[in-house]
């Protein structure tokens, strides 16, 4: 927990020191929130998909616990991504929201997260609830590649990926470093919350 706190602080300092964009000015610093939260929103859903497949195939109860614990975290990351993107979009594009493929598919991801959370409250029987949610997650994972490739498939306002081109990242290292540190910080925070939630869930189940 201490480590993650340190990483968050280092990340914030790096963000503070990072250079301003000559076009975008100060608003470019929204990126250090926006991009890591978007990555983690996708990562969380990928983890849930993998755990759902494992849970359905091998009948391991732990994976259902993970699903339940992690869903709200993913929802928060997605919401953070959408809000920061919206705040970023207002000065850059002139609107809070455009009906762009990337934006819409991320909004759908948020809806899917919300449905998962609602489904957790819906069914009385635990077995039914867990498996239903797992199957729903698997079917909903169709959305993941759509989000990932939406910038390539459709001509959109949203800029294409600039970090994942590992050989020659089209981003200066002075901006890349704080971004990566912030990503690590975000994932550590997410991980800690997830571990706490999983522990709590296991304790609840033991007591019953």
């Amino acid at each position: 927990m201490l480590i993650s706190l340190i990483v968050v602080i280092i990340g914030l300092i790096l963000v503070y020191l990072s250079p301003l964009d000559y076009q975008q000015g100060l608003t470019v610093k929204i990126m250090y929130i926006h991009v890591p939260s978007a990555w983690l929103a996708l990562l969380t859903y990928t983890i849930m998909t993998i755990y759902s497949i494992i849970g359905i195939a091998f009948k391991i109860p732990f994976s259902f616990i993970v699903n339940k614990a992690v869903a709200p975290i993913g929802a928060v990351f997605t919401l953070l991504c959408l809000i920061s993107g919206s705040l970023w979009g207002k000065p850059m594009w002139g609107t809070w929201w455009v009906w762009d493929a990337r934006l819409t598919s991320v909004a759908i991801l948020l809806l899917i997260y919300l449905i998962i959370i609602f489904l957790n409250q819906t069914f009385e029987n635990r077995d039914v609830r867990e498996k239903t949610i797992a199957i729903f997650i698997i079917i909903g994972s169709i959305n993941l590649p759509i989000i990932k490739f939406s910038v390539d498939w459709w001509n959109t306002l949203h800029q294409p990926a600039s970090v994942s081109k590992l050989s020659s990242p089209s981003m200066d290292s002075s901006m890349l470093q704080p971004l990566l540190v912030m990503t690590v910080a975000f994932s550590l925070v997410g991980l800690i919350i997830a571990i706490l939630r999983i522990k709590a869930e296991i304790l609840i189940r033991k007591n019953n």
């Binding site: 759908i108 449905i115 489904l119 409250q121 819906t122 069914f123 029987n125 039914v128």
Partner: peptide, 15 residues
């Protein structure tokens, strides 16, 4: 087996 939340079915179809 959903006895509580009737609108979720429609939500899933629309999604």
């Amino acid at each position: 087996l959903n006895k509580a939340n009737f609108s979720i079915g429609g939500i899933i179809v629309l999604l």
